[in-house]
């Protein structure tokens, strides 16, 4: 089992009030699944994504990722897990504005101590894979939105992570470019990657094999196609 969530609860303190973002979520995701997480805003979708991405830890419950219990890890340990296990693709790309495509893609390798020559080689390969072999030295502001998201996908891929976690990856793209990105995810899935997609758009979720719907901090429906 790649991902195993057991009775995950996440509470936030918002001033005097306690917000119950997740009220006991149980979830299992296997290797090479293509899962979409859906739900209206306030359903706990973002919170679940942050937990799955090891950006945060649950208030209670157990999260096992690839066999290790990440629910009680400290900041630095989580950083290591994120580096090794998770490739993020964000709605607003989140690329370093002053760095070239190649450098942006290399970034995860820098934080696991890969030597420069190896980094360059892997970055080139990843950029070619997303069809940007000729945009290695362009900066994000010299690229179109679709190209930027491809750079982000290349960055997510480079470390061969267990999960590619995409948060509204097409939210800032027009329909045609969005479709191209979704095709890219399809390819990645076919080549063996596990993909978790967070979206609120039905037609985007349709690309996946399994849709998990959240409401009020709980899984409302979990259906495979």
């Amino acid at each position: 089992m790649l991902i195993e969530l057991k009775n995950i609860v996440k509470d936030y303190q918002l001033g005097m009030d306690t917000v119950h973002a997740l009220r006991g979520v149980d979830l299992k995701i296997q290797k090479n699944e293509y899962v979409a997480i859906m739900g209206p805003s306030g359903s706990g979708k973002s919170t679940l994504m942050n937990l799955l991405g090891c950006l945060d830890t649950p208030s209670s419950g157990i999260y096992r990722l690839n066999g290790s219990n990440v629910s009680e890890m400290d900041d630095d340990h989580l950083a290591e897990i994120r580096n090794r296990e998770i490739g993020f693709v964000f709605q607003n790309f989140n690329l370093l504005p002053r760095a070239s495509s190649a450098h942006n893609v290399e970034l995860p390798l820098i934080y696991n101590g890969t030597p420069a020559a190896k980094r360059k080689e892997l970055a080139e390969k990843a950029l070619k894979k997303v069809g940007l072999g000729d945009r290695m030295h362009h900066r994000p502001n010299e690229l179109s939105g679709g190209q930027r998201q491809r750079v982000a996908v290349a960055r997510a891929l480079i470390n061969n992570p267990s999960i590619i976690l995409a948060d509204e990856p097409t939210g800032n793209l027009d329909t045609r470019t969005g479709d191209e990105i979704m095709d890219l995810f399809e390819e990645l899935h076919e080549s063996g990657n596990t993909i978790i997609l967070v979206t609120h758009e039905e037609y985007i979720a349709e690309h996946s094999d399994r849709i998990i719907r959240l409401r009020d901090g709980k899984i409302e429906r979990d259906e495979a196609k």
């Binding site: 900041d75 630095d76 580096n83 993020f88 934080y111």
Partner: peptide, 13 residues
Amino acid sequence: REIGIRKAIGAKR
């Protein structure tokens, strides 16, 4: 923002 990106990608404190 940049710090956030770097941390998300695996930069330690």
